[in-house]
């Protein structure tokens, strides 16, 4: 029982990482209704920027602030300059652009910073939070920061007019224009926010998995799984989904011997398929009901 419990905890710990990135995925989805494959690579790029600044001797918290702002600007720029011409293009064109962005940022990161693994510091340290609990201070901080981001986001969407405008722009872009909302700017804001959240998740993940250009690849698949399990329309659901994916991953790879570490990735993909089959809106997502 104690072993089971510690496996669940370890699942929660990795789930935190998935949850954080799943949140960024859902943000973009809220703003543009597409899953952005390039999200993880953007986050890696942001994390390398942070690494460079840390190498230059800037203090961690200044770096965090700068990187969040820069990432926000980068997301904004990508929407305004790169994605804008594709706003009325078919879904497939958007997907191709995402793949292009994915490749560009992945190669760019490798080109600038090389492919060797770098260590990345944590301001929280890796000592145990409490003796024998199996959760490090860094992992605890990740959970706390995810919870803070989530609360801010929830309040943003629930109580602010810009948050409402963002939900409205997704629900009906044409009508949003007709009531005076600048849909382009709102979408760019969504990209900016998602990139900023992605950067935070990158900075939190890097100390755990080490920094290298493909750091986010498998994590993003788990994050997608988390977002899909929780529901793409629900930021809170995405976070919970991230934890569920982390726990399922940890338990299945421990108790189903044939799976082991090598077959961990298919678990995420299986989860995505099962959820899409039986609960397409996710466990906590809202299904849009449309009456004509």
């Amino acid at each position: 029982m104690e072993f089971f419990f510690s496996q669940v905890l370890s699942g929660i710990a990795s789930g935190t990482i998935y949850a954080c990135l799943a949140l960024a995925v859902v943000m973009i989805y809220q703003a543009i209704h597409h899953l952005n494959f390039a999200q993880g690579e953007l986050a890696v790029f942001s994390t390398y920027l942070a690494w460079q600044m840390l190498e230059a001797g800037l203090p961690y918290w200044i770096v965090l602030l700068l990187v969040v702002l820069l990432s926000f600007g980068l997301g904004w720029f990508l929407q305004m300059v790169v994605m804008r011409p594709f706003q009325n293009a078919p879904m497939l064109s958007n997907i191709v652009v995402f793949i292009a962005l994915f490749t560009i940022f992945n190669s760019l990161t490798g080109f600038i910073w090389g492919h060797d693994i770098k260590t990345f510091p944590s301001p929280f340290g890796f000592g145990p939070l409490v003796e024998n609990l199996g959760i490090s201070r860094h992992q605890a901080a990740m959970m706390a920061i995810s919870a803070i981001i989530l609360t801010i986001l929830w309040a943003f969407f629930r109580f602010t007019r810009i948050g409402l405008a963002m939900r409205g722009a997704v629900s009906n872009p044409v009508s949003s224009g007709l009531v005076g909302v600048n849909v382009m700017a709102i979408t760019a804001l969504g990209w900016g926010m998602a990139s900023a959240i992605g950067a935070v998740s990158g900075l939190l993940v890097a100390p755990v998995v080490f920094l290298e250009p493909n750091m986010m690849l498998s994590i993003l698949i788990y994050a997608f799984a988390g977002a899909v399990v929780g529901g793409l329309t629900s930021p809170g659901g995405a976070v919970l989904g991230g934890f569920i994916v982390g726990i399922v991953e940890s338990l299945v790879s421990t108790y189903v011997p044939v799976i082991g570490a090598e077959l961990k990735l298919p678990i995420a993909l299986t989860l995505i398929i099962v959820v899409l089959l039986f609960q397409p809106a996710g466990l906590f997502g809202r299904r849009d009901i449309q009456r004509v």
Partner: peptide, 11 residues
Amino acid sequence: VPDGRGTFSSL
């Protein structure tokens, strides 16, 4: 008030 009513259906 557009053709098709322009409802924000998920709001």
